[in-house]
Design a protein around this nucleic acid. Structure first.
Lengths: 151, 151
DNA sequence: TTTTAAATGGACAAAAAGGTCCATTAGTCA
DNA sequence: TGACTAATGGACCTTTTTGTCCATTTAAAA
C-alpha cells in the first residue's frame, strides 16, 4: 500500500531544487548538482535529470565548467508553483474534476463535481500566488530546515 | 508527461465499482464482475482483483456460484469515500502536508503548511461526508452516465 | 449428481515512475 | 594549450502500478 503524495517525486524534487537555487542566487552563488542534491536531500543523479529538464523548460539557466552551476532564469522573475507543477504534471490538478470519476464538466457535472469545485479553486489560488521567490524569501534558515528535515 | 489524477486507478475503479454495486443492491440485485466492469468501463480482470480486495477489507460481500455476485457489506451502512480511499492509499491525503516538501507539522510548519491546511480540511470534510450510498442515491441515470461517459 | 456459473488466487506481462551510471561536451583557469 | 570542473544526454536498471490469464474453488440449479 503506497503512501499517497500530492505531487510526483519529480515535481517535489524540482520545487525543492528551485527554492534552494533561488536562495543561493540571492547571495550571488550558483550551486551545482552535487550541492543541491545534498542540501535538499534528493538522489543526485535523479536531481541532475530534473534540473536538465528545468533548463529546457526555461525555468533555469545553467553554466558549465569551473564555478558553473544553476541559477533561476532571469525571465522567471516570479515563478509560480503552478507554472512548475503544470509544466511537469500537466494541469489536471488545476482543471480536472479532481476525482477522476470519468469525464465531467460544467454541463454534465459528476456527482462530486460541485462539491469539489471550491477545493480546486483554492488549490489554484494557492499555487498561482505562491512563488519560488516567495518561498525563498521568508525565514531562510527555517525554510531550508523544513525542506531538509527527515520525517 | 503523465496526466495528473488525484486517485490511483485502483482507487478510482474501486469507487466506481462500489457505487454501481450499491445501485444494483437497491433493486435486490447482486452484479457480477463482468457486468460491473462493463458498466463502469474498467478492465475486467483488474476490477476482479480490486473487488477481491474490497471483500477482504470488509467493504463488500461476495457470493460464489450461480446468481452469485457482489453486494455492499451489511456492516457498511454508510461507507464514506474517506474510508475507501484511506484503506487503499493510506491517509496522507488527509493528514500530510499535501506538498510533500519534507516532514512538517504544527510545531515546525513548512512554508506551505499554513496556506494548505484549509484545503486539506476541506478535502477531509468532503470525503467524510460523501458516501457510496449518497452517490448511488441521487439521480441514478445521470450518475451512471457520468461514471460511464468517455472523455 | 452432474452441469454450470461465479468468485478466488497466483503467476505473469506491460507500462510508468523512480533512480543510476558513464562517456561526452563545454566551459574555466593555470 | 592542457588540466580540471561541471553540466549534458543517453543507456540502463529497479520498483510500483496497471493489467491479463488461467486453473481452482464454491455454490446453485437442472
Amino acid at each position: 500500500m503506497k503512501i499517497y503524495e500530492v505531487f510526483k517525486k519529480e515535481t517535489e524534487y524540482a520545487l525543492r531544487g528551485l527554492v534552494y537555487i533561488q536562495l543561493q542566487n540571492l547571495n550571488e552563488l550558483r550551486p551545482g548538482i552535487a550541492e543541491i542534491a545534498s542540501e535538499v536531500e534528493t538522489p543526485p543523479h535523479f536531481m541532475a535529470k530534473i534540473l536538465q529538464r528545468m533548463v529546457r523548460m526555461g525555468f533555469l539557466e545553467s553554466a558549465k565548467g569551473k564555478n558553473g552551476g544553476y541559477s533561476i532564469h532571469p525571465a522567471q522573475g516570479t515563478l509560480s508553483l503552478k507554472k512548475v507543477v503544470s509544466a511537469i504534471e500537466g494541469n489536471n490538478l488545476f482543471e480536472g474534476c479532481g476525482f477522476g470519476l470519468k469525464a465531467c464538466d460544467e454541463n454534465h457535472p459528476c456527482p462530486l463535481h460541485n462539491s469539489y469545485a471550491p477545493i480546486r479553486d483554492a488549490i489554484n489560488k494557492l499555487m498561482e500566488e505562491e512563488t519560488i521567490q516567495k518561498l525563498a524569501g521568508t525565514g531562510k534558515e527555517e525554510l531550508i530546515f523544513a525542506l531538509n528535515r527527515k520525517s
